[in-house]
Computed example of a mutant assay.
Amino acid sequence: MRLVRRADAERARIPFTLDGAAAEALAGDTLLTAILATADHLRTSEFGDGRRAGFCWMGACQDCLVWVEGLGRVRACTTLLEPGMAVRRA
Rank of each mutant, 00 (worst) to 15 (best):
M1D: 05
M1F: 12
R2K: 13
L3T: 04
V4M: 11
R5H: 09
R5A: 11
R5E: 02
R5W: 03
R6E: 15
R6Q: 15
A7E: 11
A7C: 10
A7M: 12
D8V: 14
A9T: 15
A9P: 02
R11Q: 09
R11F: 10
A12T: 02
R13T: 09
P15C: 06
F16K: 09
F16C: 02
T17C: 03
L18N: 04
D19F: 05
G20R: 01
G20E: 02
A21E: 15
A21I: 05
A22R: 07
A22W: 00
A25V: 10
A25G: 15
A25S: 14
A25L: 11
L26A: 07
L26V: 11
A27C: 05
A27I: 00
G28Q: 06
G28T: 01
G28L: 04
G28S: 07
D29H: 04
D29N: 08
D29A: 08
T30R: 08
L31Q: 07
L32I: 13
L32E: 05
L32S: 04
L32C: 07
T33E: 14
I35F: 04
L36K: 08
A37H: 04
A37P: 01
A37N: 02
T38A: 03
T38Y: 00
T38L: 01
D40E: 15
H41I: 03
L42I: 11
R43Q: 08
R43G: 02
R43H: 05
R43L: 11
T44N: 10
T44A: 10
S45A: 13
S45G: 12
S45D: 10
E46M: 12
E46Y: 03
E46W: 09
F47S: 11
F47W: 08
F47A: 13
G48K: 03
G48L: 08
G48V: 14
D49W: 09
G50S: 01
R51Q: 06
R51T: 00
R52M: 11
R52L: 07
R52I: 05
R52F: 01
G54N: 06
G54D: 01
F55A: 14
F55I: 03
C56T: 10
C56P: 04
C56Y: 11
W57F: 15
M58E: 14
M58W: 13
M58F: 15
A60E: 12
Q62Y: 14
D63T: 10
D63Q: 12
L65D: 12
L65N: 05
V66E: 02
V68S: 07
E69T: 03
E69W: 01
E69H: 09
G70P: 03
L71N: 06
L71A: 15
L71T: 12
L71F: 06
L71W: 05
G72C: 07
R73Y: 15
R73H: 14
R73M: 14
V74A: 08
V74M: 06
V74I: 08
V74K: 04
R75M: 06
R75C: 13
A76C: 05
A76V: 09
C77H: 06
T79Q: 04
L80C: 05
L80Q: 06
L81F: 00
L81G: 04
L81S: 08
L81W: 09
E82W: 06
G84K: 04
G84S: 10
M85Y: 01
M85A: 08
A86H: 02
R88E: 02
R88A: 10
R88M: 07
R88C: 02
R89S: 05
A90K: 08
A90N: 09
A90S: 12
